Amino acid sequence: MEVHDLSGGAGVLARVEEAARRALRRYDLSPHAAVTLISVSENATFAVEDSGSRTILRVHRLGYHTLDAIVSELDWLEALRAEAGIRTPAVIPARDGSRVVTVEDPGAERRACVMFEFLPGGEPAEDRLAEHFEPLGALTARMHRHAREWARPSAFTRFHWDCDAAFGPIARWGRWQDGAGVDKEAHAVLTRLEAALRDRLGRFGKGRERYGLIHADLRLANLLVDGQAGTSVIDFDDCGLGWYLYDFGAAVSFIEHHPQVPQMIDSWLRGYRTVLDLPKDDEDEIWTFVMFRRLLLVAWIGSHTGVEFARELGAGYTRGACELAERYLSGSL
């Protein structure tokens, strides 16, 4: 696993902000444009204010994606917008027409940067989650239908979200065994969970109707609900090849214990089936993908200790994962 360089503290973030300011010089912006850090997760995201207009600049972490992979992400994001009617943020090209610009980061490699339009809306309200999951199911199915039909560019390249990427020797987000609070007892439970997931997903298979190009991070924070415009999908940074049902597992990221999850599942399925068929055998594995994502997130928290949200979740998230794992393994989910 690559070291998450953006977890390196205030000094690194100061350099990343300087890289962001250098990137802005490549765009048609005034020299007085204001740059404000919004968040740090896999990448650093900045709001850019210039003469009353607002855009979003993403500064990439080092070592996570190649330039070809970033271009491939943008190709799909733009195709969804143009061909499937999915509201995604438009990519704003630099002055020379480049969609991806690279700039010097003092003391590091060159960083890739992408500018997006600012889209209105906010995260779905927690007291109306089940209600939001029906349109989310339909939206997800439209994305899956496009992914199946889309002729990818010849240079298209994105990584996989399969068992090897999750639990293999070079796991993408690190080893769950190194997660916060993984003591002897938790290790035993989660080892059983990993074995069960590998077995069930091995039998589920990677047939064309089950495995393909997915967003892979359709959690609530990446949905913008606007009363007039509808729902927008942002942050395609993790999009790649995986099981289509993984997109539901990602949708309940960090809220897997919510008492409305069964209703969310029913609502999501109802919406999904207005666009695409979903066989009963696939529906029966929904909790498999919830637990697959949950175990990945235990690893993510352990490998992102410099990210405030990961620190806040900490060992409590691992304890919750063990509780859910016991229920899953006993067949009570």
Rank of each mutant, 00 (worst) to 15 (best):
Gly97Glu: 02
Ala44Gly: 11
Trp150Pro: 12
Thr66Val: 01
Pro89Asn: 06
Glu83Ile: 10
Val100Pro: 03
Ala147Ser: 15
Val16Phe: 04
His160Leu: 15
Leu57Phe: 10
Gly122Cys: 07
Leu77Asn: 00
Ala19Val: 01
Ala112Cys: 11
Arg58Asp: 12
Trp150Ser: 00
Thr36Glu: 12
Pro31Val: 05
Glu123Tyr: 03
Val71Asp: 15
Val103Thr: 02
Glu109Tyr: 01
Thr88His: 10
His60Lys: 02
Thr66Trp: 05
Glu117Trp: 01
Phe118Gly: 09
Met115Ala: 11
Asp28Asn: 11
Arg145Trp: 11
Ala69Lys: 12
Ser53Glu: 10
Val100Ser: 01
Ala20Asn: 10
Asp68His: 03
Leu129Ala: 02
Arg152Asn: 01
Pro120Thr: 06
Phe118Met: 10
Val101Cys: 04
Pro31Asn: 09
Asp127Ser: 07
Met115Asp: 02
Leu136Glu: 01
Ile38Arg: 13
Cys113Gln: 03
Pro135His: 13
Ala90Tyr: 08
Val101Tyr: 03
Ala19Gly: 10
Ser98Val: 07
Ala82Ile: 08
Pro89Asp: 11
Arg87Leu: 07
Phe118Thr: 04
Glu134Met: 04
Trp76Phe: 15
Leu77Ile: 05
Arg87Thr: 08
Glu18Leu: 15
Glu42Gly: 06
Glu78Val: 13
His160Arg: 14
Phe156Pro: 08
Gly85Met: 05
Thr88Tyr: 01
Ile38Trp: 11
Leu67Ala: 14
Glu73Met: 05
Ala44Glu: 02
Asp105Cys: 15
Pro120Glu: 08
Glu134Leu: 14
Phe156Met: 11
Arg142Asp: 00
Leu24Lys: 10
Ala94Gly: 05
Thr36Gly: 09
Arg152Ala: 00
Ala23Val: 09
His65Met: 13
Ile70Phe: 07
Val100His: 02
Glu126Met: 15
Ala20Leu: 00
Asp96Phe: 13
Ala23Phe: 06
Ala155Ile: 01
Pro93Thr: 13
Leu24Gly: 14
Thr88Asn: 14
Leu37Gln: 10
His32Ser: 15
Val48Met: 00
Leu80Glu: 07
Glu131Ala: 15
Arg87Glu: 03
Ala33Tyr: 11
Asn43His: 12
Val101Pro: 07
Thr102His: 11
Arg95Ile: 13
Glu17Lys: 12
Arg158Phe: 12
Ala20Thr: 09
Arg145Met: 09
Arg15His: 04
Leu139Pro: 08
Asp96Ile: 09
Pro93Met: 03
Thr140His: 09
Leu74Phe: 08
Phe133Tyr: 03
Val114Trp: 14
Arg87Pro: 11
Val48Glu: 13
Arg142Asn: 08
Leu80Lys: 12
Leu129Ile: 06
Arg99Tyr: 05
Arg61Cys: 10
Leu129Asp: 02
Pro124Phe: 06
Pro120Met: 09
Ile38Met: 15
Arg128Thr: 14
Val48Ser: 01
Ala82Pro: 00
Leu29Lys: 12
Leu24Thr: 09
Ser41Lys: 03
His146Cys: 01
Glu18Lys: 15
Gly63Tyr: 02
His160Glu: 11
Ala79Tyr: 09
Glu17His: 05
His32Cys: 05
Arg152Lys: 07
His132Leu: 10
Arg111Gln: 13
His60Trp: 07
Arg26Val: 05
Gly52Lys: 04
Glu42Phe: 14
Val71Asn: 13
